[in-house]
Amino acid sequence: MTLVKFNPEKKNNVLLPGFNDIFESVLEDTFFSGRRTSNIPSVNISDSAEAYHIELAAPGLKKEDFKVSVERDKLTISTEKKMESSEHEKSYTRREFSYSSFTRAFTLPDSADVDRIEASYQEGVLKLSLPKKEEAKAISRQIEIQ
């Protein structure tokens, strides 16, 4: 564990000088650095004339790891993964457990056709296509000027 350093040149809270330095020191410690990573994958959402598209970056997972469900107007994407590794050397055993899970929920617009949602998983990206209802598709036409 690193020693707490006080840097008087940093602008700290006037009432509690050094307060930010203590937390920065603890959180930058090597014990915590590998454990502070976010388990929530990034999402891109786009809209075309025909459908809404969701792309979720989740490398290292398999398509079987995902659970995609729709309930009322909420689309939920979740996964739970449990990894175990063990290493046998000489006269001792070391086991390491790793659990990761996330849940992302999206409120669907009324124009989404929930009965025709399609999903695919390729190269670490989960892609969902949410077709729009026929009455919600943008109708484009040229208007003649008189």
Rank of each mutant, 00 (worst) to 15 (best):
M1P: 08
V4H: 09
F6N: 14
E9S: 09
L16K: 13
G18N: 05
N20I: 06
D21G: 00
D21L: 04
S25V: 04
S25P: 00
L27P: 06
D29H: 15
F32L: 13
G34D: 08
R35T: 07
S38R: 08
P41R: 03
D47L: 11
D47E: 08
A49N: 12
A49E: 15
A51C: 10
A51D: 05
H53D: 10
H53I: 06
L61M: 09
K62W: 07
K62V: 08
D65H: 03
F66R: 00
K67E: 07
V70D: 01
T79A: 15
K81Y: 03
M83D: 11
S86T: 10
S86I: 08
E89D: 10
S91M: 15
Y92L: 13
Y92C: 11
T93W: 10
R94L: 12
R95N: 14
Y99P: 07
S101H: 15
F102G: 02
A105F: 13
A105R: 14
T107C: 14
D110P: 09
A112K: 03
A112L: 04
V114P: 04
V114C: 07
D115E: 12
I117E: 00
A119K: 11
Q122A: 13
Q122R: 14
L126I: 00
S129F: 05
L130K: 00
P131H: 01
K132N: 03
K132G: 01
K133S: 02
K133M: 11
K133C: 04
K137I: 00
A138L: 15
R141V: 05
I143Y: 02
Q146C: 13
